[in-house]
Design a protein around this nucleic acid. Sequence first.
DNA 1: AAGTTTTTTTTACGATCGTTAAATTCACTT
DNA 2: AAGTGAATTTAACGATCGTAAAAAAAACTT
Lengths: 249, 249
Amino acid sequence: MKKSNKKSQLPASKNENDQYENSGSLKPTTREKIVKAASTIFSNFPYYAASIRMIGKEAEVDHPLINYYFPTKADLFQEVLKITIDEYYKANVQWFDGLAALGPEKGFSLYIDRFIDFALKHPKPMRIIALNLVQAKQFDIIPGYQLLQQFFLNAMQAFIKSVPVKGADFDIQRLTTNFNTMAINYLGASDYYAGILGMESQSPEYLKWVKDSLTYIILPWLKQLLEEVETDNRGIGGETVTARRKRGQ
Amino acid sequence: MKKSNKKSQLPASKNENDQYENSGSLKPTTREKIVKAASTIFSNFPYYAASIRMIGKEAEVDHPLINYYFPTKADLFQEVLKITIDEYYKANVQWFDGLAALGPEKGFSLYIDRFIDFALKHPKPMRIIALNLVQAKQFDIIPGYQLLQQFFLNAMQAFIKSVPVKGADFDIQRLTTNFNTMAINYLGASDYYAGILGMESQSPEYLKWVKDSLTYIILPWLKQLLEEVETDNRGIGGETVTARRKRGQ
DNA sequence: AAGTTTTTTTTACGATCGTTAAATTCACTT
DNA sequence: AAGTGAATTTAACGATCGTAAAAAAAACTT
């Protein structure tokens, strides 16, 4: 509340669409530079290990200037989270394009190829999620924790929106949760897992391992989901996700 | 190197077996209190968010006393990691007891029950792993990173040692890695995942979800592994794990 | 009981943290 | 060219961090 009056006259992005990628203009604004640098730092260090001074250095900006655009570190982090999750969601929706005509095997294969390709070009989202996801809720450590949860809900929604799946919502939820859990780990913590496997985290060998793992584990259930009829209640706890939503959370 | 001379006269645990659980004696030593408190703090905060002062408070000890037993924070963390991973490994081996006679379904079911039961009684190991696993290798943030990797290698070894599996090592590696990845996430970051699912992290409902997920995803491949003969090379990249090890890393 | 060693407490150093406030520079309007 | 508001730099605050060193207390040896 100390700075509620200050907040009202804060500079904000004029263009609603501008991510930190800077939508086409020649040189990025200071605000954009800060957000971009912040996303870099926050994708390499968990919230409390990352510092405003690191971000300032990365953005080539005096660090108090960051407080001019973002009154607190938490504000900046939440902004990065918001952009990151939004960017990821929009990409995720696109990966489904034209998959329906290919059938489960080829469709799933292409989806993962697109996914991995995106993760290689934009490694930050998965890392930011992975780095901060575990943090204990009970300690209220991470600002924007709801946004972090939104990540999975978005992924499920993108799936439902794009795939003509007929199974119980409960099964869909399990499928997407399991898929994204592995994806976040294997792509967001690739150094760790590649290290275990004796591979390099960027190598085709490792990426093939990731794809194979996701395929072996998810594809059979995806197939089954696509074949199921709505009345089939094979899933444990037949309650649908929509029913759960109506109930509140 | 500043304190290499000091290190030689450091107090150490006389009994090789004493974990922070204190093997039977009446009151824990100061060292044990510190290690136990440290494991609590390190299971709630990632390495850099945890502080020596937090640990001192938790152990009810003046914080400089910690430096008397552990010259640096990194030393203490590595000690906790070592104990944690060792404790987990020994428990893991025990979960396999008497499973062979039950067949895949019942054996796997009992294994997971034991696993989840352990995770409820000893939530720290999974959390410590989950909290620090993602950290970038290239920044050398986390001391004892090799120990963190050891976790997965141990899990695979426990599996091979206890299950009469005939498949290619490559397939075994994928099976155990996928299994433990999900286990670490769902049990080590249960607040997050339960939150997504609209459940409570300790509830029977959520634990059932975890068990079901692990079962659906792993069991089919476990069955297949148990049926495979050694010459079957269905796995991608037929190189065995032992061959990989001989090659170095 | 005196002396010695081990353990614990006290105090404090230097570094870094997020944030604030004032001084300065810049961009723009008149 | 003067004036004005926004953007940026400079300087510094209080807090916390890991660690060190010295003082004090406790435990042990003789």
